[in-house]
Simulated assay, not measured.
Amino acid sequence: MPELALPPEATSLAGAVAQSVRDGVAAGELVPEQTYSVYQLAGLLGVSRSPVREGLLRLAEAGLVEIIRNRGFRVLPPRAHDVEEIIGIRLALEPPAARLAAEQATDEQHATIRSALATMAAAAGRGDDAAFWPADRALHDLLLRASGKPRTAAIVEQLRTTTALLGPPTTASGRSLAEIHAEHEPVVTAVLARDGAAAEDAMRAHLEATRELLMANAR
């Protein structure tokens, strides 16, 4: 039986169920070849079937699971060409947003971005994966929102939810948390210096490196 737990930070029970399934996939507790029942998942998480169904529907809409009528659900990990498409979309959205965050964001927003990078650095120094990846996502989200693009931020978050099924990018070829943090440093440095061109270039370089590692893992 897989070992799953509801995350305490979720804003809704359905959201907690969806997150627990994502975490279970990343941890290897839920595998693509097996079909799991709604009853089984509800029992493991100690919740009723209603939020389980709602959470699974959210994951199905994002293309993360396949719901099998009268049987349950099955995990659908992204394939290499899916990853290439997803990172391609992010490359179209995030580098220009980094430029705008550098050129147009307020000093207060820049201070929040600086703090997010410091949180990543502290987590990397401790080797704390559980703290590092939320900080990574938060930094990307802050950069997008500082560019004045909240809808783009929501799109990118959904895309990252899909690629998260592959596990953290460190598993692709041994890239460390410190190395990933180092890829973000020139982005933030350029943003804080209000150097839009450098911020755009640094974000593009980071995403291209991530694409290669994720695609290697998907293959």
Score class of each variant (00 low, 15 high):
4 L>Y: 00
58 R>W: 07
116 A>Y: 05
34 Q>G: 04
39 Y>A: 14
50 S>L: 14
164 A>S: 15
163 T>M: 11
119 T>Q: 15
47 V>D: 02
98 A>S: 10
99 R>E: 12
3 E>H: 15
22 R>G: 05
69 R>G: 11
130 A>Q: 12
179 E>P: 06
219 R>G: 11
149 K>T: 15
169 P>V: 10
115 S>N: 14
114 R>H: 14
34 Q>K: 15
106 T>C: 08
3 E>I: 08
32 P>S: 07
133 W>G: 03
169 P>E: 06
165 L>W: 01
16 A>C: 06
215 M>I: 14
114 R>W: 07
129 D>V: 07
59 L>Q: 03
85 E>T: 14
193 A>R: 09
214 L>E: 07
171 T>L: 14
124 A>I: 00
162 T>C: 10
91 L>W: 05
46 G>H: 05
84 E>C: 11
187 V>H: 02
71 R>F: 12
116 A>E: 07
5 A>S: 14
146 A>S: 11
57 L>H: 11
37 S>A: 13
216 A>V: 10
131 A>N: 05
88 G>R: 04
139 L>T: 00
90 R>T: 01
163 T>Y: 02
26 A>F: 00
204 R>E: 13
186 P>R: 00
51 P>H: 04
118 A>Y: 08
174 G>I: 01
148 G>H: 05
75 V>N: 04
111 A>V: 01
74 R>E: 08
16 A>N: 04
162 T>Y: 13
187 V>S: 01
139 L>W: 01
119 T>N: 14
177 L>Q: 03
50 S>C: 08
38 V>W: 06
141 D>H: 11
211 R>I: 05
93 L>C: 06
73 F>I: 02
108 E>W: 04
207 L>S: 02
82 D>P: 06
57 L>T: 13
33 E>H: 10
140 H>T: 12
97 A>E: 02
3 E>L: 14
153 A>L: 05
102 A>M: 03
93 L>Y: 05
9 E>G: 09
218 A>Q: 02
78 P>E: 00
158 Q>G: 13
162 T>I: 14
120 M>A: 04
141 D>N: 14
219 R>Q: 12
41 L>T: 03
75 V>Y: 03
20 S>Y: 00
47 V>S: 07
195 D>Q: 08
169 P>Q: 08
49 R>K: 15
181 H>I: 06
78 P>S: 02
207 L>I: 10
94 E>M: 11
171 T>W: 09
92 A>S: 13
116 A>P: 01
56 L>S: 01
117 L>W: 01
44 L>D: 08
177 L>N: 01
91 L>G: 07
83 V>A: 03
32 P>K: 01
58 R>M: 13
151 R>E: 14
1 M>A: 10
22 R>K: 11
8 P>Y: 09
114 R>P: 05
146 A>H: 00
65 V>M: 04
61 E>H: 12
96 P>K: 06
124 A>Q: 00
167 G>L: 04
216 A>G: 11
40 Q>A: 13
172 A>I: 01
171 T>D: 13
146 A>R: 02
218 A>P: 03
141 D>K: 10
9 E>S: 15
201 D>I: 12
155 I>N: 05
189 T>P: 06
162 T>F: 13
66 E>T: 11
127 G>C: 04
216 A>I: 09
55 G>L: 00
36 Y>G: 04
199 A>M: 02
37 S>R: 08
35 T>H: 09
120 M>K: 02
160 R>T: 14
193 A>Q: 10
37 S>M: 05
61 E>I: 14
215 M>C: 13
89 I>G: 10
175 R>L: 15
213 L>F: 07
22 R>F: 06
